[in-house]
Computed example of a mutant assay.
Amino acid sequence: MTKSWMKRSGVLLLGLSLWLLGCASTLRELSSADALESHALDATQEYKIGPGDVLQITVWKQPELSVRELVVRLDGKISFPLVDDVHAEGLSAQMLKAVLAERLSKYITAPHVTVVVREINSKLVYVIGEVAREGPIVFRSKMRIVDALAIAGGFRQFASRDSIKLIREYNGSGPVEFIFDYDAFVAGKNLAQNVLLLPGDRIVVPPERLFSW
């Protein structure tokens, strides 16, 4: 991990912590796991490509034009045979397919193009609090709360595992929070609470309350 990335991660983590402190008293709690799951499924129906994502692009019967691994550059573009630079950031796989087919049609009759997003590296989920490794992690398709916690290295000794918070921007109405009970989940209770994550989700693992007043 480079020093610049460590510095950037530290700034992101500090900014996120300050944001959470600022809105802690205004968050609306969402108790329905089904609502969050449905929201995630709707939002990921058409994934938008971003810098760092790895694409596989196939042109039927044109092996010399097919590329198994093509990384989207930081400027949001890809370089592809015959058509040079193509802007990919913000497009779905289907949209990029149409753009490439149109560009290639100048050189190939009725090109049949397939675009697959093989790796998602442009979207982040944030895990902070009582975990081994705080900070941003790369979002993966079908990632759930438990997956993110595992990538963050699991819990520290005094983590409050039954009151983990998932904070998400929800349907344009501002952030909501959902309480995840890890202990109940691993005991086989309320398995539905392990909802799908979305890029930008924040998972907060608070410390145990050592004293109750």
Rank of each mutant, 00 (worst) to 15 (best):
T58W: 07
T114P: 05
L18G: 00
I128N: 08
S31N: 14
I203G: 00
S122D: 05
L14E: 13
L191I: 15
D42P: 01
I145L: 14
T109L: 14
I137G: 02
V54A: 02
P175V: 06
Q45V: 12
F211K: 13
P136A: 08
L124W: 10
R28P: 04
L82E: 02
P175N: 11
F158M: 10
E177Y: 15
R118I: 06
A93V: 10
I78G: 09
S163K: 14
A24F: 10
E208H: 02
E102Y: 14
A184Q: 14
D85T: 08
G10C: 04
T109I: 14
L210V: 05
P175Y: 10
L100H: 03
L30K: 04
K189T: 12
G129R: 04
V71D: 00
E64S: 06
S9V: 10
E208P: 07
S32C: 09
A88T: 03
V186L: 09
F180P: 03
S32D: 10
E69D: 14
L55D: 01
A35G: 01
R161M: 04
L70P: 02
L91Y: 08
V117M: 06
W5K: 15
Q94L: 13
L55W: 02
S31D: 12
A93H: 10
R103Y: 12
V204N: 00
K77D: 02
G135I: 05
H112R: 15
Q193I: 11
S141K: 15
V195E: 01
V146M: 09
E134V: 11
S160M: 04
F158I: 04
L70V: 08
Q45R: 14
H87V: 15
E177T: 12
S32Y: 06
R8I: 02
S105F: 13
L21D: 07
K77Y: 03
L16W: 01
F185W: 15
V125D: 00
N121T: 03
A150P: 04
L197Q: 00
W213H: 06
Q157N: 06
E89M: 13
D34E: 15
D84E: 13
V86E: 03
A152N: 03
Q62D: 01
K77A: 12
D85I: 01
V127G: 01
S25F: 09
L70A: 05
Y170C: 03
Y107T: 12
K142C: 01
I164M: 01
D75S: 11
E119Q: 14
V59T: 08
L198H: 03
S9D: 14
D85V: 11
S105I: 09
L198C: 08
Q62H: 13
F139V: 07
Y47R: 04
L13G: 01
S92Q: 04
Q56L: 02
E102R: 15
W19H: 10
V113E: 09
P111M: 10
P51L: 07
L166D: 00
P136C: 08
E119D: 06
A150Y: 05
I203N: 02
V116K: 12
R28T: 13
A35H: 10
